[in-house]
Amino acid sequence: MPRLAAAVYVQHPATREVLILLPGEKPEPEIAALVTNPKAWEEPPIVVGQEGAADPAESEPGPEQVKKTAPRRARSAAP
């Protein structure tokens, strides 16, 4: 089971209690699934049923998946 590299705050799914997980802890799988930041882990856990969990590079959006936004208009100077 992976260890945390940083302290994180999560909400328990059943009791809604705020949990403080400290570096070095090995949380239960249902609690570990709530920690979504991969930098919080020494090694990110593999979550069963999560697509691309084994290879984080596959989960990044490719050029065809990136949503393009309209360019912003420049503000005009006040007279």
Rank of each mutant, 00 (worst) to 15 (best):
M1N: 10
P2Q: 03
P2A: 04
L4G: 12
L4M: 14
A6K: 15
V8H: 01
Y9I: 05
V10Q: 00
V10N: 00
T15Q: 03
R16T: 09
E17I: 02
V18F: 06
V18D: 06
V18P: 03
L19C: 08
I20G: 00
I20K: 06
L22A: 09
P23L: 10
P23K: 08
G24K: 07
E25K: 06
E25D: 15
E25V: 04
P27G: 05
P29S: 13
P29E: 13
P29V: 09
E30V: 08
A32K: 02
A33S: 14
V35F: 01
T36K: 14
N37M: 05
P38T: 02
K39Q: 13
A40G: 05
A40R: 07
W41M: 09
W41Y: 06
E42S: 07
E42W: 04
E43R: 10
E43H: 07
E43I: 13
P45N: 11
P45G: 11
P45F: 06
P45V: 03
P45R: 08
P45S: 11
I46C: 06
V48K: 03
V48M: 06
V48H: 01
G49Q: 10
Q50M: 14
G52W: 09
G52I: 11
G52D: 08
A53H: 02
A54W: 12
A54T: 04
D55M: 10
P56A: 11
E58A: 13
E58Y: 08
E58H: 07
S59M: 15
S59G: 07
P61K: 11
P61C: 03
G62F: 05
G62Q: 10
E64S: 10
Q65W: 02
Q65I: 00
K67E: 02
K67W: 01
A70F: 13
P71R: 09
P71M: 04
P71D: 06
R72Y: 01
R73G: 12
A74V: 14
R75T: 03
A78K: 08
A78N: 03
P79W: 10
P79H: 11
P79A: 13
